Computed example of a mutant assay.
Amino acid sequence: MVGSFVYGGLPTRVVFGSGTLARLPDEVARLEARRVLVLTTPHQAVEGERVVRLLGDLAAGVYCGAVMHTPAEVTRDAMETLQGAGADCVVSLGGGSTIGLGKALALRTGVNQIAVPTTYAGSEMTPILGETKDGLKTTVRTLDVLPETVIYDVDLTLSLPVGLTGTSGINAIAHAVEALYAQDRNPIVSLMAEEGIRALAAALPRIVERPSDAEARAEALYGAWLCGSCLGTVGMALHHKLCHTLGGSFDLPHAETHTVVLPHAAAYNSAAAPEALARVATALGVADAPQGLFDLAGSVGAKRALKDLGMAEAGIEQAADLAVKNPYWNPRPVDRAAIRDLIARAWAGDRPVAA
């Protein structure tokens, strides 16, 4: 029997397919924008120039300084470029770092955003912005940072390195896992979550074997869209709190951190959310969800230990202290000793334990 629930669909326009980047000028016109600043990371500056050529006279240039965790000083620098160019719209081409910068600019100026994701992070579908200042990462949730339009172009993901493909995809799966046991979960989001996990879990190993497999790339991007929609619609729990703590305080890579932590967070919550974890297991095609997530990370060649991402063992205690400070809602109470043990296992790369 279906009980009472609340579902709020988010007002983002989605354009999905192969070759859809060519529709960017039309999408800019729909927003009635006059000057467009293209945002990228330094690594994707060349791709940003391609977008400038596509936009023609609409383009106000490229800002290619986006970095992980949206540091306040980078946002200030980008603001100067935005205002100096007189731009009323940004096109964020890239992953969570670039899309996060676009959101930070929108929060401060109200500019329209068109996100063109080239990874599977899912940030483009959320009204959530995480920013880092003085070594601490904080999040804000407001429709003011939700992109107006998202263009998913499968062709742009064909060159995504296999390593980043795996960790970015598991990062997306994390959104769906937590959506299944979210405090405000609902049947619609749960359907999207299970389908998103299934699509990504099926596609990622195929991409590792054949990176140019367009069909697998399309299924992965479809799964990422679903998982990102879950993240944007319901609240997250312990896993995301841990990853924000670790990423912001220890400057760990975002997707890789999610990949390491997810099996352990799922194991922590498995007894408190058995139906949710059973649905995760079904979507993965395994008997045990935390073990299946750990094995999926291994199958795509991802690192499975925080120590391998550059975190010192001395940081375990600090991370535990930060994780229990202002904790997110979680189906299982957040216990400092148990969280410390979880982080220690994730640091060492041990298999998850449902303690």
Rank of each mutant, 00 (worst) to 15 (best):
A85M: 11
K103Y: 08
E80N: 13
D88R: 12
T118M: 11
A85D: 06
Q83A: 15
L136P: 01
G100E: 01
K137M: 12
G96H: 03
T119N: 03
P117W: 02
E124V: 06
A104C: 14
G110Q: 11
L82Y: 12
D144P: 03
V116A: 01
L107H: 12
L105M: 12
G135I: 01
V91Y: 04
M125Q: 04
G122E: 04
A106F: 09
G110M: 10
V140A: 13
T138C: 10
A106N: 03
L136A: 15
K137F: 14
G95T: 09
G135T: 05
V116T: 04
T109D: 13
Q83L: 15
Y120R: 05
L105V: 10
G96I: 07
G86V: 10
S123Y: 06
G102A: 09
D144K: 14
E80T: 15
T81L: 13
G100S: 11
T126H: 00
L105T: 02
G110E: 08
L107P: 06
G110Y: 08
I114T: 03
G102H: 06
C89K: 04
M125P: 00
D144E: 14
Q83R: 15
S92M: 05
L93W: 00
L143A: 10
A85R: 15
R141Y: 08
V91W: 01
L129N: 00
D144Y: 12
T132S: 14
V145D: 00
D134T: 05
G100I: 04
T98H: 11
Q113N: 05
V111I: 14
G102K: 02
P117C: 08
T132I: 07
A104H: 06
R141S: 14
A85Y: 07
S123L: 12
V140P: 01
I128S: 02
L107I: 08
N112L: 07
T142E: 11
D144I: 09
T142C: 11
T126I: 07
K103D: 03
V91H: 04
L143D: 12
K133A: 15
